[in-house]
Simulated scan of single mutants.
Amino acid sequence: MRVRHKARVALLDHGHLVFLKRGRPGGDAYCTTVGGSVEPADADLEAALRREAMEEIGATIGPATEFLTLTEPRGTSTVVQHYFLADLLEMDLERRHGPEFDDPDTGDFEPVRVALNRPAVAALNLQPAELADYVLGHVEAWGV
């Protein structure tokens, strides 16, 4: 069975969390973390995370700490999602690049800043559900 790894990051930004708002035309919008597949050229998970943050939102990030790992069997492969928490150091949407931005079917792909509290996070439709549950259980501690 093939195993694919993905590196994803919840970003802390001065009392806020930064997620990605996603949605395709005709579908429901949702939020998720910045991140994606670990590529063969990536030295490790953190290198993939830094590359994805730059590609998706033009961001540089501080040190990253893994807080959740989800394993999803998908037929002939398994996807292992590694979720990290890191400080957002800088974001410039003009630096975004990658295949997502060349595909007209990508739909919404925008950063969203939300207050670092349970009601704000609960209102996001944060996906996947396991991530939302974890963040809701820890968001106040992240703000300390």
Rank of each mutant, 00 (worst) to 15 (best):
D28P: 14
A53P: 04
A59I: 06
V79K: 13
E55S: 07
E52S: 01
R51P: 14
L116E: 11
A29L: 05
D13E: 05
W142P: 07
L124H: 14
V121D: 04
L126E: 00
T78A: 04
E100C: 10
L11A: 00
V139K: 10
L124K: 09
T71I: 10
P40M: 01
H16W: 14
A41D: 14
T33K: 01
L131E: 00
L89W: 10
A47F: 02
A7F: 00
E130Q: 15
G23I: 04
F101E: 08
V79F: 13
V18A: 05
M1A: 13
G23E: 08
L12I: 12
Q127R: 15
E140H: 12
L49N: 09
L49Q: 10
E66L: 11
E46R: 11
P25V: 06
L131D: 04
L89S: 04
K6W: 05
R74M: 06
L12G: 12
T69N: 02
F67L: 10
R113I: 03
L124N: 07
N125Y: 08
R8W: 14
H97V: 04
I57A: 01
L20G: 02
W142Q: 07
R96V: 03
L116I: 15
D44M: 15
A59L: 07
R51S: 01
R113S: 01
L126V: 02
A48Q: 10
G36W: 12
H138I: 07
V80K: 09
P73W: 15
L124C: 10
A7D: 03
T69M: 02
V3S: 08
E46Y: 07
T69A: 06
A115M: 08
T71A: 14
F67N: 00
V38L: 10
G143F: 02
A86T: 03
A86K: 01
R8Q: 14
A141C: 08
R4C: 00
V80L: 06
E94G: 13
D28V: 12
D87M: 00
D87E: 15
A7G: 04
V114C: 08
E66N: 09
A120K: 06
L116S: 14
G62D: 06
A120P: 07
H82V: 11
